[in-house]
Design a protein around this nucleic acid. Structure first.
Lengths: 149, 149
DNA sequence: TATTAATTACTAGCAAGCTAATTATGTTCA
DNA sequence: TGAACATAATTAGCTTGCTAGTAATTAATA
């Protein structure tokens, strides 16, 4: 029947799924001052302490200016602190506050719940294929971007 | 080796791929005043003329306030016009300008190029699986969202 | 050592996306 | 008819994301 090929729709489906996922998670956690990005950040920070902003941005795969504003919000909400780095007065290391630590603890189960809600019925095989495709897209985007420089 | 399960990383990979795709396309077309969202909008408008904003938002699967600002920008760049709807003074129908029409024509090949660059090496089978997964995520997000209301 | 390079975080400015609330207009129905 | 309800576009306010450019500091090198 008259369905467009997967190739034709996949990029659209990609951004759609990404938006819907974010909207759902954000709606669930907004009362605590959380968002998907803040949750991701808290998770990373609880696993790898004492990252500088540069390192944290790399870990999250976002640009440093994006992180600056993300951290501004998180600092305002009392999740994190910016601390100085001895030996480099330019850098700041990001530390969880006790409150941030506590919230980070709760996020693990929220993330689990999100995965359960969004991925039930998805076979392990499809999941593997999807991850392959997503990684290809990411890698190719990077390559194409560099070529045009 | 010690890689996290696909289930654990897929949502992260999803938002990453989406961001990289957008960044690449935006970088490619920014000189013409285009963006990925504007391009998508132009494509829809060239296929289905005379949509109202409400209908267009539905077609694009975005909220109407998001569309308002999207159209503001596109109007400013001369891609589209807001025209009145006879019989309903609340509504506006969106029309391509001649220039918008011309740009819409160019977008088809830009989209093709994007798909080529991002999806080479991806098997049709993986593509199908990925689309299945993405649609499941989108549908489940909608369901979960409605449940919590 | 002094100058040049690179690096770190930041600001500014833009666009996209969301929700909530508003205004104007249409529709329904008592 | 009038009152209540529904709908279309908008505004306001928030977050995320990007690029480009800046100030301060550090590293490298002539």
């Amino acid at each position: 029947m008259s369905e467009a090929s997967f190739r034709d729709v996949i990029l659209d489906e990609l951004s759609r799924a990404s938006r819907k996922m974010r909207a759902l998670f954000d709606a669930r956690v907004k009362e605590r001052g959380l968002t998907l990005s803040r949750a991701r950040t808290l998770l990373v920070l609880s696993k790898i302490p004492d990252l500088t902003q540069r390192e944290l941005a790399e870990e999250l795969d976002i640009e440093t200016p994006t992180l600056v504003r993300l951290l501004d919000g998180m600092e305002k909400h009392g999740f994190i602190e910016r601390l100085s780095v001895e030996g480099d007065r330019r850098a700041k290391r990001i530390a969880l506050t006790p409150y941030g630590e506590q919230v980070a603890g709760e996020i693990a189960s929220l993330a689990k719940e999100l995965r359960r809600d969004l991925l039930t019925g998805v076979s392990e095989k499809d999941m593997a294929a999807a991850v392959r495709v997503l990684r290809t897209i990411t890698a190719s985007a990077l390559t194409s971007c560099r070529e045009s420089v």
